[in-house]
Design a protein around this nucleic acid. Structure first.
Length: 431
RNA sequence: GUCCCCAUCGUCUAGUCUGGUCUAGGACAUAAGCUUUUCAAGCUUGUGACACCGGUUCAAAUCCGGUUGGGGACGCCA
């Protein structure tokens, strides 16, 4: 059993293409067959190395490894050979305009696709015009090269998007003209954009790389794509690639087009972020931290990153968000928004912060538990409520009004920086 | 215009093939509550769907026909 994914390097790997690839890959791995990657670069003018690299890179990132790699641009002579054969047999003819194109005669008959997902689909080929096989520049057309390669590469199952259903009768005619046996077809539904219709750049990101840049984990994206048109059953939502291989069957794929829902993808991503080990998360977040220039910060110990990430992984939906949240650990001085300053520091809190500083400075073990005890005793001593003191403290130390648990945060921040930021806020009261 | 595909909560889906166990289950989103030093997370509860019409049948989300709606294809693009 052999399947293939056949992208054209005339653009980035689209999210829809990624899912088609995923279903092919899943089916091959589930059945113990081979997964062939074929680059359909017959359009010399539009095909670009940059796109090819990006497609290969995206597939690797998603974890979809291939067993063979072929390029149509290296097989032009094969296509021409078959086209000549069809001319010799009277099944194709040279274009009458003298352009050099080779055109197949379309017979008048009924052809039936026995689609693995849709069941039988009938077409009247009498309604289809003669098909160009070889263009005037001697390059093959999509339908022709596709049939020859699928046959020569012994592809047994063709899993592709619904939009190819109407290409199928044309291809079947070519299979028959060439005397090739037919593969099995499975047409999976397309992914629709939020507004209905094809997913477009306007409606949101379409390229796999964009999702990567937005801070999605490959596992989350793959998981989401899997759920679009297939279900592992038992109300399971979170599923790994390896688990899916055990449960996947192409016959179980849906017929209905699915609408892309960013919310669910974000939710899945947050689930994956939450379940990652801090060390793994640190590695995943590293590119985003360095992109923000955080990693080079001189007053920072990179060994502490995993423990800090642990504080934030519960509240981040993307790696970008996660990296952003770490900002208070990388800056010398926190910036406090004017409106926030107004709200929290309208009155002088020199006394409160001085007591806090004194208590914090006295700690020899600067970890969450003693920090909390010190804080609580300060609250008692000052005769105020926890709320009264904790929110201004958070703002003073992080510059933000929301964040993780206060005491764990202070521990992660460290004694020196904590005291320095308290000094800084006290100084601001004196102005 | 012609041809093709599809039709369960707002969205993704389970159930459809093999009609009854479906007063239709789960997830996201949403609303309320609990928890709480904030925001999240988590937990509990709620709102919410078989597109419509007809047929077959003792019985239809499930089978058949039509209507409507949505999507796709009709390139010397892939």
């Amino acid at each position: 059993m052999r399947v293939r994914f056949a992208p054209s390097p005339t653009g980035y790997l689209h999210i829809g293409g990624a899912r088609t690839c995923l279903f092919n890959w899943l089916y091959a791995r589930a059945q113990g067959g081979q997964f062939v990657l074929r680059i359909e670069d017959t359009d010399q003018a539009r095909s670009k190395k940059e796109y090819l690299d990006e497609i290969l890179d995206s597939l690797k990132w998603l974890g979809l490894n291939w067993d063979e790699l072929h390029f149509q641009s290296q097989r032009f002579d094969v296509y021409r050979k078959y086209a000549k054969k069809l001319i010799d047999e009277g099944k194709a003819y040279l274009a009458e305009d003298g352009s050099g194109a080779i055109i197949a005669k379309m017979p008048q008959k009924m052809v039936q696709i026995d689609d693995l997902i849709h069941g039988p689909i009938k077409f009247d080929t009498g309604l289809i015009k003669d098909q160009v096989l070889i263009k005037s520049d001697q390059s093959p057309t999509y339908n022709f090269a596709c049939v020859i390669d699928d046959a020569e590469m012994n592809i047994t199952h063709i899993i592709r998007g619904d939009d190819h259903i109407s290409n199928t009768p044309k291809q079947i005619i070519i299979y028959e003209a060439l005397g090739f046996g037919l593969p099995k077809f499975a047409h999976i539904p397309m992914i629709l954009g939020a507004g209905g219709g094809r997913m477009s750049k306007r409606a949101g990101a379409t390229a796999v790389t964009e999702y990567r840049r937005m801070g999605f984990l490959a596992e989350a994206l793959v998981n989401y794509l899997m759920l679009l048109g297939w279900s592992p059953g038992n109300n399971q939502e979170i599923i790994s690639l390896s688990d899916a291989v055990k449960k996947f069957d192409i016959a179980g794929a849906n017929k209905t087009a699915a609408t892309f829902d960013m919310n669910k993808l974000l939710w899945l991503n947050s689930q994956y972020i939450k379940s990652r080990e801090p060390e793994e998360l640190a590695a995943l977040a590293a590119p985003f931290l360095s992109e923000k220039g955080f990693v080079d910060a001189n007053n920072f110990d990179s060994n502490s990153i995993p423990s800090i990430l642990k504080l934030y992984c519960e509240r981040a939906t993307t790696l970008v968000e996660l990296a952003d949240a770490l900002k208070p650990f990388f800056v010398e001085e926190v910036k406090i928004d004017e409106a926030v300053r107004e709200k929290f520091f309208a009155q002088d809190m020199t006394k409160e912060f001085s007591v806090l500083k004194e208590k914090f400075a006295a700690l020899s073990d600067f970890s969450a538990r003693p920090i909390e005890e010190a804080f609580r005793s300060a609250v008692t001593e000052l005769g105020v409520t926890t709320k009264y003191l904790i929110h201004p403290l958070r703002v003073a130390l992080s510059g933000k009004t929301v964040g993780p648990g206060m005491f764990e945060f202070i521990e992660a921040l460290g004694q020196q920086r904590t005291l320095r930021r308290i000094d800084s806020i006290v100084r601001s009261f004196k102005k």
